[in-house]
Design a protein around this nucleic acid. Structure first.
Lengths: 184, 184
DNA sequence: TGGCAAACTGACCGATCGGACAGTTTCTGA
DNA sequence: TCAGAAACTGTCCGATCGGTCAGTTTGCCA
């Protein structure tokens, strides 16, 4: 893969996540990359192809994490799974935020369907079908809240803190929100 | 105000919140309302004017809540403030979600600036400048998470539960996330 | 050095965007 | 009843959208 392709991917990721997929034109991506719109379409055959290339790595990583814990839940490895999930959120915060916020408006895009299916599997882990309403709500708040907070360093006075400190705090908060039933 | 104006406002709110402001055309709003695009522009002089009319009520209500507790914090009325805030979230969940998710892409819109200023005041209530990183993160997760969760009844298997049950659960979760420093 | 493939570009296309404007229908109160 | 206001509409406009295509530049290797 040439550097142009990777540059375009990261530029598109930043723009899609902040300005939104629909509001980001290929022309703007081209300008940010110092290329012409034609060149963007040379590397990625369409805007949708660029979107898929943008979020596919995050989807694959998420799928790998879930698969590595089998399909029968992860209660025995809850702590380890939570750490892996938090690290995933930190690494792919833009991708996660984009999917969380713009997923509903991006239906019919295959990679979005994959992501949706993964979220449902994830929800089964943290809040099975038998879980109470509050537990399901806790999962939704943890997921959407982390995605929002991690991408909102600019407003609300969130300082750019050391990654270790952010990780520790996020682990604490997520652990509390997603605690198993009895200790709630 | 004629019923058409109110119909347009609610239709635009639903579309803006789900599909996104940029991705929603005046043509689509007109079709959903059973009108022509010209009629939409008759009631609201521009797409941006329609956006402002859509979220202004929520902004005003939020400002009223904050103002009613004075500018010196609300520690003495923390419980009552939290209840009022939760009720606000439940009533204006679409508006809040739209602002939270699309705010960054809607800069330069006056009403969005008002909303941003309010969020900063709100953050000062729950997590003052002196608060720790984790406390600020808790506020961000609570705000963004609630907005996301309340607008995502469709996915993640969130059932359409009685409003009282949802309110009670949300109050519990938000109270835990936004608890004062010592009892954290 | 010559040739070929990868990278890149400008010009152009149909569609759709937000919006302007003149004109028509519908409602309403004197 | 009828005039004026309110509500509504079709047509048109410039701009921009995603995308196509023929042609040019660039880099690499035999």
């Amino acid at each position: 893969m040439s550097s142009s392709q990777e540059d375009l991917r990261s530029i598109a990721l930043a723009e899609f996540a902040t300005a939104g997929y629909a509001a980001t034109s290929l022309q703007r991506i081209a300008e940010l990359a110092g290329l012409s719109k034609s060149s963007v379409l040379y590397h990625y055959s369409s805007k949708e192809a660029l979107l898929e290339a943008t979020i596919a790595p995050a989807i694959d990583q998420m799928a790998a994490i879930i698969d590595s814990y089998g399909e029968q839940g992860f209660d025995t490895n809850r702590e380890a799974f939570l750490e892996g999930f938090v690290d995933f959120l930190l690494q792919y915060r833009l991708e996660v935020n984009m999917f969380i916020n713009q997923g509903p408006s991006l239906v019919d895009v295959p990679v979005i369907d994959r992501a949706n299916a993964l979220v449902l599997r994830l929800a089964d882990f943290f809040a099975a079908n038998t879980a109470s309403l509050e537990e399901k709500m806790r999962f939704g708040i943890a997921l959407g809240g982390a995605a929002y907070m991690l991408c909102t360093v600019h407003t609300a006075g969130l300082p750019a803190s050391p990654i270790e400190e952010t990780r520790a705090a996020l682990l604490s908060i997520m652990g509390q929100l997603l605690a198993p039933v009895p200790s709630r």
